[in-house]
């Protein structure tokens, strides 16, 4: 069953369309890459899926139910977001930051209990940041912070994980580790993950499916080999490229020419 389904979704922004006639779905255990040039509507799409923006037209279904009927808290219990970066005003410890992910599951005046601590611990182990638990979030490197943000998102116990250019500030080793982690979360935990990425090569390596956006519409959709072609990339990004195969993984590789 599709966990996320968008049916003929459009979003108007002032005069023009930010998104137009989007039909898409993502299943349990699936890792879907969203690619497209700047301003093609990728982030707007995520805001619509997470209920931060209401579609001007069309309906978003989350696990079969219309998203519009859910409260913020209910949505956050099902959909979590890993941002590109987060801004940390106060020196919370890593464990405290991860425990914040428990917010949608707690009532007013309720403190986190043993169950929450266990869930947070598990989330930190999964994203390999449990050894950082007592450190201040301010002392961490970019790669470590990103893993904490994943742990925080996992602590929400979501069914859907959204990631908006999560690897932008990471070096190549952390980028690879990031995609490997997300890929294993999808296959082992049945998480439905959508990732916006400008790293088309890595997305092609790990994603089951790629959705390519151009000017607010879906331009192409399918397996990485079907979508990531010289013609598609050249047309959508307006930049001539040669796509060949990565000699080791046999997945599409984009060469700028």
């Amino acid at each position: 069953m599709a966990l996320i389904r968008l049916s003929d979704v459009s979003y108007t922004y002032g005069a023009g369309y930010a998104l137009q006639g989007i039909n898409m779905a993502a299943r349990k255990g699936e890792l879907v890459g969203i690619i497209g040039p700047n301003g093609s509507g990728k982030s707007t799409l995520f805001k619509i899926i997470d209920g931060l923006l209401r579609p001007s037209q069309g309906v978003v279904y989350l696990a079969g139910l219309p998203l519009a009927r859910k409260t913020r808290k209910q949505i956050a219990g099902q959909v979590a977001m890993v941002p590109q970066e987060n801004y940390f005003l106060f020196p919370f410890s890593v464990k405290e930051v991860v425990l914040m992910g428990r917010f949608p599951h707690k009532g007013i005046f309720q403190f986190e209990g043993d169950t929450d601590l266990k869930i947070a611990q598990e989330a930190m182990e999964l994203s390999k940041c449990d050894h950082l638990g007592d450190r201040s979030i301010h002392e961490l490197s970019g790669g470590e912070r990103q893993r904490v943000l994943i742990a925080r998102a996992l602590a929400q116990e979501p069914q859907v994980l959204l990631m908006d250019e999560p690897t932008t500030f990471l070096d190549i080793r952390f980028r690879k580790e990031f995609f490997e982690l997300v890929s294993s979360l999808c296959s082992q935990r049945g998480l439905c993950s959508l990732v916006i990425s400008h790293d088309i090569d890595l997305a092609s390596m790990y994603c089951h499916r790629i959705i390519m956006l151009k000017e607010g519409r879906i331009y192409a959709e399918g397996s990485p080999t079907e979508v990531v072609t010289s013609e598609n990339i050249g047309e959508v990004f307006g930049c001539p490229v040669l796509v060949d195969k990565n000699p080791v993984t046999q997945t599409p590789r984009v060469n700028i020419i």
Partner: peptide, 16 residues
């Protein structure tokens, strides 16, 4: 606590 992390982050974690 959550709003100190930024309004969008707080929204994603379920804060109205």
């Amino acid at each position: 606590n959550l709003m100190a992390m930024g309004e969008e982050a707080a929204l994603h974690m379920g804060v109205d």
